[in-house]
Computed example of a mutant assay.
Amino acid sequence: MSSHVAPGDQVTPGLDRRTELREFLRSRRARLSPEDVGLPSHGRRRVPGLRREEMAQLAGMSYAYYARLEQGYGETMSAEVLDVVARVLCLTEEEHGHLIRLAQPDRQSTPQATPPPQRLRPTVQHLLDALGVPAYVVSRRMDILGWNRLAAAVFGDWGRLPSAERNVARLIFLSSAMRDRFSDPADAALKVAGVLRINAGKSPGDPHLASLIQELSQKSEEFRRLWARHEVSCGSVGDSVRMRHPVVGEFDLVREPMALPGGAPMRLMTFHAEPGSRSEEALRILASWEMEPLR
């Protein structure tokens, strides 16, 4: 199964790492008020958040030095400086890692170049088919590389879609049928945008990923709004997602993502219901239900 950009198609250049770093730092400053970091407030501000000079003061550096970081020149900074900036901005662990990847990509432990065209190993598809829970495999670009029958029953039959449309982000933002499978589609969209953002930080030079982001920005106002927030997330382990299905109604699944070793980055996404719950019964019904295609 191919990525969403067919071979030979014109591909958008990758994302600009310095621009991403600049906008990320600005967005993190904007969400903090002076009171949040122990500074006095001087009345209403024209723009929300900390000013650059306040940020530099809190980080113990000159304004010019911090401004250079926010201009995208993080490769000249020490690891200690980036750690201080992360602490002052109250970054989460995921956001801290995102900052380092954008500022100093050479510090990454493994190469994050553009991955080659991805194919699912037959043994992985056999594993999917053997699992008794909904499961699918996605690439870093969120292309859906393989799935099992129960995943098709829960999310819709991806096999009836053209391969170019089998992408979680495209379906969440551009397919009403996919969105209708989630009880809270806005929350699902927020999480997908966060995963896409952190993956873009890992591979800013990937033109296929940049092309997907450009397409979603052109076609979805919701995506443009969420993308501008610069939220990052690698997908919460063990979080609950409420699904909605025309046959069994609403039910809850626990999401467990796992990295697959070998070759280009892939993640196995599994979903299970709490034992003895109504949701487990809903999955049993869907396991014997004839799959309904996405329309």
Rank of each mutant, 00 (worst) to 15 (best):
M1F: 10
M1G: 13
A6E: 15
Q10K: 11
Q10I: 12
T12F: 09
G14R: 06
D16C: 09
D16A: 12
D16Y: 04
R17G: 07
R18Y: 04
T19C: 02
T19L: 11
F24V: 06
L25E: 03
R31Q: 14
L32D: 04
E35Q: 14
V37W: 06
L39F: 03
P40M: 07
G43K: 08
R44K: 10
R45P: 00
R45S: 03
V47R: 11
G49Y: 04
R51H: 07
A59F: 03
A59Y: 05
Y63E: 11
A64C: 00
A67K: 05
L69N: 04
E70F: 07
Q71W: 06
Y73C: 02
G74E: 08
E75V: 12
M77L: 14
S78L: 08
E80I: 09
V81E: 02
D83C: 05
V84W: 02
G97E: 12
L102N: 04
Q104S: 13
D106I: 05
Q108T: 11
Q108P: 00
S109D: 13
S109Q: 15
T110F: 11
T114P: 00
P116T: 13
Q118V: 13
R119S: 13
Q125N: 07
H126I: 08
A130P: 00
P134F: 03
V137W: 04
V138M: 10
R140W: 01
M142F: 13
M142K: 09
M142W: 14
N148W: 11
N148V: 09
L150S: 07
L150R: 05
A153V: 04
G156N: 09
G159L: 08
R160C: 13
S163D: 15
S163H: 12
E165Q: 15
V168G: 01
A169F: 07
F173T: 08
F173P: 01
L174A: 07
S175Y: 01
S176A: 15
A177D: 15
D180N: 14
A186F: 01
A186Q: 14
A186T: 12
D187M: 11
A188G: 09
A189E: 12
V192I: 15
A193L: 04
G194M: 05
N199F: 02
N199E: 15
A200F: 01
P204E: 02
P204S: 03
D206V: 03
I213Y: 01
Q214G: 10
Q214P: 00
K219G: 00
K219A: 12
L226D: 02
W227V: 02
R229F: 00
R229Q: 15
C234P: 00
V237F: 13
G238E: 08
V247Y: 02
V248T: 10
E250N: 11
D252I: 13
A259Y: 03
L260C: 06
L260K: 05
P261S: 14
P261V: 09
G263V: 02
P265F: 08
R267D: 08
T270F: 05
H272R: 14
A273Q: 05
A273G: 07
E274P: 00
E274W: 02
S277F: 05
S277E: 07
R278C: 03
E281D: 10
A282Q: 04
L283W: 01
I285H: 04
I285A: 03
I285N: 00
M291G: 06
R295W: 04
R295F: 08
